[in-house]
Design a protein around this nucleic acid. Sequence first.
DNA 1: GTCTATAACCCGATAGAC
DNA 2: GTCTATCGGGTTATAGAC
Lengths: 199, 199
Amino acid sequence: MGKPQSDPRGGRERLITATVGLLSRQGYEATAVKQITTEAAAPMGSFYFHFPGGKEELALAALRQGAEGVDALLTETLARATAPEEGLADCALALADVLTRSDWLDGCPVAATALESIGRSPVLRAAAAEAFERWIATLQHHLVRAGVADAPARSLANAALALLEGAEMLARVQGSAEPLHDAASALRVLARTAIPSVR
Amino acid sequence: MGKPQSDPRGGRERLITATVGLLSRQGYEATAVKQITTEAAAPMGSFYFHFPGGKEELALAALRQGAEGVDALLTETLARATAPEEGLADCALALADVLTRSDWLDGCPVAATALESIGRSPVLRAAAAEAFERWIATLQHHLVRAGVADAPARSLANAALALLEGAEMLARVQGSAEPLHDAASALRVLARTAIPSVR
DNA sequence: GTCTATAACCCGATAGAC
DNA sequence: GTCTATCGGGTTATAGAC
C-alpha cells in the first residue's frame, strides 16, 4: 500500500486524464502515443514505465476514468431534477451544455473507441460495454426510484442511453444542439408514459 | 461521356464497395489503404489512379455510397410497414436483423468515421452530416405522410435517428439485440403519441 | 489503365544512461 | 522514476515500366 499515488499531479494521472480527452475528441486509432505524452508533458520512457501494456493499457484506464466522469454527471443531473419525469431530459440538456461550451469537441469519452474496438480489441470493447452497462444501471435506478418496475425501467434506460449517445453524435457532427433538444423532448414523453402518478 | 464506368466490376467500384464495408466494421483511422486494395483485389497504382486525392477521397465516395444503401433500407422498411405508427420500430428491427446475421460487425457505414472526423477532417465530417440529414429527411417524410405536421415530424425524426444510431452502437458493443428491441418499443410509443388518428 | 517497387514518413515500443 | 536516442515495422503516397 504505502502511498501509491501520493502526488495527484504525478505522471500517471496526467497521462490518463490527457487520454480521456483525446479519446473523446478523436477516438483510439487517431490518437498517437506521442500526442498523449506531449499533452501530458510526460516523456516516452515514463509512459512505458507506468503502462507496460502500452497504448491499449492506458486506453483501458482512460475508458474507466471517463466512464466514472459521465456516471457522476448523470447521477448529479438526475438528483437535481425538479421532477422525476424531467430527469432523463435534463441529462440530454446537460450534454448539450458541455458540448456547446467545448465547440462540439468534448463528446462521450467512450463512443468513438467503442465503435473502433468491435472486432479489433476485445479488451477495449469489454471496457466500453462495462461503461455503458454502468450508465444504464444509473438511469434504471432513477426510474425504479420513481416507481417504475425493474423490467420496464431497464428497457427504458437502454432506450434513454441510446437516445443520449445517438443525439450527441448527431449534434457534434452537425454542429447544432437541435438533436439533443429533440432527444430531451422524446425522453420527456417516454418518461411520462412510464412513470406512474404522472399523466 | 463515352462509357466512363462500363464494367460494373471495374476497380473503382470494387474499391468503393470494399471501403464501405471496412468503414462500417472498423472506421476510418483503423483502415489502411493496403487493406482496402487487398480486399478489392486492386493494385496500389490503380487505387491512386482512380482516387488522386488518396484515402480521404475514397472514404468520401464510400460514405456517400453507404448513405445511399442505408437510405434504401429505411425507405423500403417504412414502405412495407403494416401501419404508419409501426414504421420507425420496424427500422430498428431491420437493423437488428442485419447485425445478428453479420455477428455484430456490419454496423452503420457512417457512424465511426463521423465521430473520428469531428475536428480532424472537415470533408468527411460534412459527408457524414449530409448522410444523417438525408436519413432524417426520409424519416420525417414518412411521418408527414402519416399526418404529422412538418416541425414535430422533423423533431421526432431527429430523435428516431438518434435512437437508431445509439441503439445500434450499444447492441454491437454488448453483442446483444436487446438495445435495438428496446429502441423499437420506444419508437412505437413516440410514433403513437405523434401520429393523429392513432390513440 | 494497370502493376511493382520503393520512397519518405510516422507509428508503437525498447534500451540503457542517469 | 525519468529521460533520450533509436529500432523495426507499417503507413500513405509516388515513380516509372508496361
